[in-house]
Amino acid sequence: MAIMGREYHHAHHFPSARAEADAAKLGMWTFLATEVLMFSGLFMAYTAYRSTHAEMFKAAHQLLDWRLGGLNTLVLILSSLTMALGVRSAQQNKREQSAFYLVVTLLCAGAFLVVKYFEYTHKIHLGLLPGGYYTYNGPEFAGIDSPHIFFGIYFLLTGLHGFHVLFGMIAITWILLRTTRGDFSSKYYTPVELVGLYWHLVDLIWIYLFPLLYLVG
């Protein structure tokens, strides 16, 4: 699979570049299925404990700042848009425009993590930590048992999602480098498209995460 500047030769074991691109996209979608199922484990834990400890979840969610959550949702939606436009520009051989959109996506991802950082420090300061480290004695939990489970699930869900945002940023940086090196064109833009698919899934998971964690009815 030699990539020399503009000209691209598809792998020898594929009949055509198109077959190779389709196989890559099929592989990516299969990988996204594994991501969906991995996060489903955490959503299962959330659903199990929300259905058996409903009042604890209602009390615990007040300690989350929904405004920051909402801001993060908008930031990720914007990054999803710029990512999609980045892929679109790569498909149209517009290298600079694609690089620009990818940089904006990176900035949005960075902003998301910064907001997360503030949320986490606020909770650590209050002592709203998982299980063994939970030391919060606020009025909200009078007569409510094991509130630490909500924060255990909160930190696991948002933490794993945060790691996936981090992996996404690394992947986008790699794609940005290759874009500036001129590897992609309307003939060969598969890596940009695949990183785009991954990033949209990370945004998709946050779209479900936001109402479930921050806006418990």
Partner: peptide, 12 residues
């Protein structure tokens, strides 16, 4: 972290 999801001693 002693999250407590699967540990009855922590309410799981």
């Amino acid at each position: 972290l002693k999250v407590g999801i699967f540990d009855p001693a922590m309410g799981g």
